[in-house]
């Protein structure tokens, strides 16, 4: 469709404009409040904005690369996220083959199934086949110490990092009448809503945050940030209805669901970080932490968004 490329370029152009404005604000704030690099909030803000440039450029290239680009990008994100998650598990020598197969067998098969569009198998492959097979592999090694913990950790790692994350590229396989050839924009919609919800929660929280919403899990999250972030992300999503198959109000409602799932995804992943006594999942994305720190909200919203769209929009 001819409209696809112009819509994608318009969206990327819009995001680029926002980043230019954000960089300008970051520059002014740094000149005024942190000329010697001493204000850690400002320094972190600028590190985050810079990392956003890199992430948006990668995303943009992947989107322009179409199906292949998106598949490769998310397969790599799954790999990097699984690597971070596995680092924190209590796995032992006896889990070696189970873990190796998670990385080098289960992950490629899951993305391969999505590539060939086999919905009946990719939607159950991990929860049925991988979840039964991996404990068997681990049990065959005969080490029973913390067996249940180890199996549960490995399964949860696959669920979050591979199964959930792979539902983002799976959006490409939905056949929505009148929306043929534009599915990449559905992914763009999901990512923009989730990430703008994260950013806006951060901004609202920094500006007006007073009451902590989950002090045990995430001390930086506030009620004001939550309400402001979710509502403004809803507006962002509604304003993007023209790139989706949804009406204005449908886009707003779906954005609400996406933003809420994203928020709770962030909370769940924070709970795991607190449990393991770490602040970030990794260090690969400057200012943000690891891949999971950036993906936590996406992985929780992607499967729900996928199934809602599939149920109501795919005949």
């Amino acid at each position: 469709m001819t409209g696809f490329h112009s819509d994608l370029m318009m969206l990327l152009g819009g995001i680029g404009t926002i980043l230019v404005i954000a960089s300008a604000i970051g520059y002014v704030l740094q000149r005024r409040l942190s000329p010697d690099g001493s204000n850690s909030v400002i320094e972190n803000l600028n590190a985050r904005i810079q990392a956003w440039w890199v992430m948006v450029i990668f995303m943009g290239i992947a989107f322009l690369g179409g199906r292949t680009g998106v598949m490769l990008l998310f397969a790599f994100c799954s790999f990097a996220a699984l690597r971070e998650f596995a680092t924190l598990t209590n796995t032992r020598r006896a889990d070696h083959w189970a873990l190796a197969s998670a990385f080098f067998v289960v992950l490629p098969i899951q993305y391969g199934l999505i590539w060939i569009d086999w919905y009946g198998l990719y939607s159950i492959f991990i929860p049925v086949y991988a979840f039964l097979l991996m404990p068997i592999v681990a049990a065959l090694r005969g080490d029973t110490e913390n067996y249940l913990d180890r199996v549960a950790e490995t399964q949860w790692a696959l669920m979050i990092c591979v199964f959930c994350a792979s539902h983002v590229p799976a959006l490409l396989s939905l056949d929505i009448p009148g929306y043929e050839g534009r599915n990449v924009l559905l992914i763009a919609f999901l990512i923009v809503v989730v990430q703008s919800s994260d950013v806006l929660q951060y901004v609202w929280g920094k500006l007006y945050g007073r009451r902590k919403i989950a002090p045990e899990l995430s001390p930086s999250k506030t009620l004001e940030g939550f309400v402001g972030g979710i509502l403004s992300a809803m507006l962002v999503g509604a304003a993007l209805w023209w790139i989706t198959p949804f009406s204005f109000f449908q886009a707003a409602l779906l954005s609400l669901v996406i933003a809420l799932m994203g928020f709770f995804g962030g909370l769940v992943m924070s709970a795991i970080k607190r449990d393991r006594g770490i602040k970030d999942w990794g260090h690969l994305i400057a200012g943000h932490g690891g891949f999971i720190d950036r993906l936590d909200s996406v992985v929780f919203s992607a499967p729900i968004f996928f199934h809602l769209v599939r149920y109501w929009w795919v005949p």
Binding site: F79, L82, A86, A100, F104, G282
Partner: peptide, 15 residues
């Protein structure tokens, strides 16, 4: 040592 314990052939990706 967790990435590739003695006697294993395939390394596990860990940070």
């Amino acid at each position: 040592n967790r990435v590739m314990p003695k006697g294993e052939l395939v390394p596990i990706p860990l940070i």
